[in-house]
Amino acid sequence: MSALIGSIRVVEPQVFDDCEQWVEEPTLLVTRFEYANLFHTVTDCYSAHVSSRVTDLPNRPHLVFVDGHCKTQLEETWAALFSSIKYAKNFSGSVCFRHAVLSPLGYETTIEGTE
């Protein structure tokens, strides 16, 4: 996540002319840790949900996993909470988002402090 934030740059508007794909819908960008672990999946889901409420995204926003992990049996949990699930690793070419929200890591939420 630190590397992702560190790579953010302010660019001139014409740079966006090179985007091969635009995602118009508000989208949560989520990095999962311990993605096959039930407790950590719940903390990541909680973090994503709170992020969507705090930023006033629509109910059941779209979600993109930016972590590179594969699909697990716990994916049904995410599918029940969000409109769509995509994986950044499956994007090809440059992708630009009109409205993206970075969800905090599960380890950085209030629910994690109860462990």
Rank of each mutant, 00 (worst) to 15 (best):
A88Q: 11
V101E: 04
T109E: 10
F91L: 10
C96L: 13
T110H: 11
L81D: 04
S94W: 08
A100I: 00
A88H: 10
A100H: 02
K86S: 14
H99V: 05
S83W: 01
F82Y: 13
Y87P: 02
S92C: 08
L105A: 08
S84V: 03
S84Q: 07
I111Q: 04
E108D: 14
F97T: 09
L81W: 05
L102T: 02
L81A: 10
L105D: 11
E112H: 12
S94Q: 14
H99M: 05
N90H: 12
E108Y: 09
Y107P: 01
Y87A: 01
L105C: 08
A88V: 10
S84G: 07
Y87G: 01
S84F: 02
F91H: 07
E108F: 07
V95L: 08
S94L: 11
L102D: 06
E108H: 12
L81T: 03
C96F: 05
F97A: 03
P104H: 09
V95S: 05
T110M: 15
Y107W: 11
E112A: 09
E112L: 06
L81N: 13
V101A: 04
I111T: 03
N90K: 13
I111D: 02
S92V: 14
F82H: 01
G106Y: 06
S84K: 07
L102V: 12
F91T: 08
Y107R: 07
R98N: 05
T110P: 03
L102P: 00
G106I: 00
T110K: 14
S83P: 02
T110D: 14
A100G: 01
T109P: 00
C96E: 06
K86H: 10
F91V: 07
H99N: 09
H99S: 14
S92F: 10
V95R: 00
S92A: 06
F97R: 07
T109H: 04
